[in-house]
Design a protein around this nucleic acid. Structure first.
Lengths: 341, 341
DNA sequence: CTGAAAGCGCTTACAG
DNA sequence: CTGAAAGCGCTTACAG
């Protein structure tokens, strides 16, 4: 019965402001004004427009509006792979925070084989107002990233910074966090401390490591080991197994992030080492998994909400700087460090 | 030195096709053609345009293009909260698959207190070509959801269906999955089986439960318990604790999804019940966490990649139907069901 | 193959 | 407060 050339078949004409103006008996300008907050329009006209709009199911065309206002209201969120659950969480919170400001999030993926610049170019075609890049496994941030900022679109690196580039970046104070981890471990009696790193090319890895080492040095100590690999579970497991393959092994381990630390915990369990009696473990991030009864990981929480608010604030009046905007992590005591208060 | 009214200060004029045409000494139409695959343009002209474009850093304005072609290339991805790690994974894979097709993903969040319709309206302003809704904790999908489909924009529910509504939906065959779970448990000797559900309002919960019950009935059995709650870890823990508070408790548990099943596992560990010797546990989804050494959860994997491809295929020629497009889950044997092959 | 021109659906001075 | 008109940056018939 229903043939494909009936008007019902999806080809419904979009309703425009002209249709509404005709219905309401006003000019097209008037319907535009009715949908523009703060525009000069009488309550009566406004009501008539809104009624007509509702009747016709009219929604203003944001694309057309963007073209004339030169403001798309779109912010690009550029993500790598989402294996670290810390990022999806940040992602959805960003999207929400953006919506609260009347903006929209365009989600773009970036795979490590390609240049971020390509992704940014693709995004810039949509006249994005800003780009936020999540650096999951993103090592090869190209040296010309700053060009985009010069092109008028501010770029913000979330949770990573690129030394020597004038870019916006918001991050946790990873150096201080590394020190804090060392502090906690030292204070609870550890003497043979190890750091199990993530991707050594990243600032997160480096800063946490350096902070950790600095604090150890104050105590006249050096880490018994500090292997690096990737911010991944399997790596945490493997590195731990290797660490205890010979000799006593460390009596405390700082995992570069929670995913790694959880790998550490699972490896220790497999090895029959008790946590925290035989070895203390501390992580970084405070992802959901860390609170599971099977882990109860003591960790340093990144203040995600504050970091996101600050990122959006920074984007409003972009002042690229060599220095990232830093936020202090918060120690979350759970059960993997001995002598917890 | 650098004062704020210098031309460098962010106010860089966007470069348009007119600028490029001037630079290349051709018409504006020509530059448009140079960027339109398949357009009639001589290689020579094309090269000159592309050179000029590169020199000026030109990127075609996708917003303007959308306005005239009536195709935005934008697909809305509507997500609830992202607590279940199954969804972020789906999200990033969708974004990638969309990009492979030259489309872009607009990320919108939806909180349970508001009407999905509002979110869809907001999205429709961006002239989206389709909307994919992820039903995390989305119970109150309104009865008028189909209206959007009538408005010309196809809406697809991912991993959930709404009985009685003519909508697109792609889901795992949860009924068959529930049967499979029962089958596995029965075959490995379980006799006192329990189902720990998720949100009882959802089709995922209901279908898995019904499939499970149907298979038990074939064996002349009924579940010893089938409480429902939420697709959350804490609920899995609590429900399990309650289940063993008195009497023998079940010798096998089917968790409505992996997050719940992981809660079950942690609760059993706390209770001192051995898995799988004392009780078998099986989940649904196969999220990353399930493969951790601490869990090694036997589960039914949703064929995410195939489901995503199928969703995108369905959207190309939308044929709303009462029936969801179903995909079979795959049993992943790990260590939480006794007598694993 | 190429260019001039109309038009996509809005916003926003400009007059009234 | 209101309407007519120009214009945002493109694509795409239409002639040549």
């Amino acid at each position: 019965m229903k043939k494909d050339d009936t008007p019902t078949s999806g080809s419904t004409q979009r309703v425009t402001s002209h249709d509404v103006s005709r219905e309401a008996g006003v000019s097209q300008s008037a319907v535009s004004r009715a949908f523009t907050p703060g525009a000069h329009i009488s309550p009566e006209t406004r009501r008539r427009v809104l009624d007509a709009a509702r009747k016709l199911g009219y929604q203003p065309n944001a694309i057309a509006r963007s073209l004339v206002t030169q403001r798309s209201g779109i912010v690009a969120l550029i993500v790598g792979d989402l294996h670290n659950p810390f990022y999806p969480q940040a992602l959805s919170q960003f999207a929400q925070a953006l919506e609260a400001r009347g903006k929209r999030a365009l989600l773009l993926t970036h795979d490590a084989r390609r240049d971020v610049q390509d992704t940014l170019d693709a995004a810039s075609r949509y006249q994005i107002e800003a780009a936020i890049v999540f650096p999951t496994r993103l090592n090869n941030t190209p040296p010309n990233l700053g060009d985009v900022a010069r092109g008028g679109v501010p770029v913000l690196l979330f949770n990573r910074h690129l030394p020597g580039q004038r870019l916006l970046s918001v991050a946790c104070d990873n150096h201080a966090g590394g020190q804090l981890a060392a502090e906690v471990l030292l204070e609870t009696g550890a003497r043979r401390l190890a750091f199990i790193g993530g991707d050594p090319e990243t600032s997160t890895h480096q800063d946490r490591l350096h902070g950790f080492m600095a604090r150890l040095q104050q105590a006249g100590l050096a880490p018994v080991a500090a292997p690096s690999g990737a911010f991944q579970y399997d790596w945490g497991v493997q590195a731990t197994l290797d660490l205890y393959a010979e000799g006593d092994g460390p009596d405390a381990i700082f995992g570069a992030n929670d995913i790694v630390a959880i790998g550490v915990l699972d490896a220790l369990r497999q090895l029959g080492r008790r946590v925290p009696q035989d070895v203390s473990v501390i992580g970084f991030d405070d992802i959901q998994e860390s609170a599971r009864l099977a882990y109860r990981l003591t960790t340093i929480r990144q203040p995600l909400g504050a970091m996101i608010e600050d990122a959006l604030l920074a984007l409003e009046d972009p002042q690229p700087s060599d220095e990232p905007r830093l936020h202090q992590g918060e120690l979350i005591w759970r059960d993997t460090v001995r002598g917890a208060r």
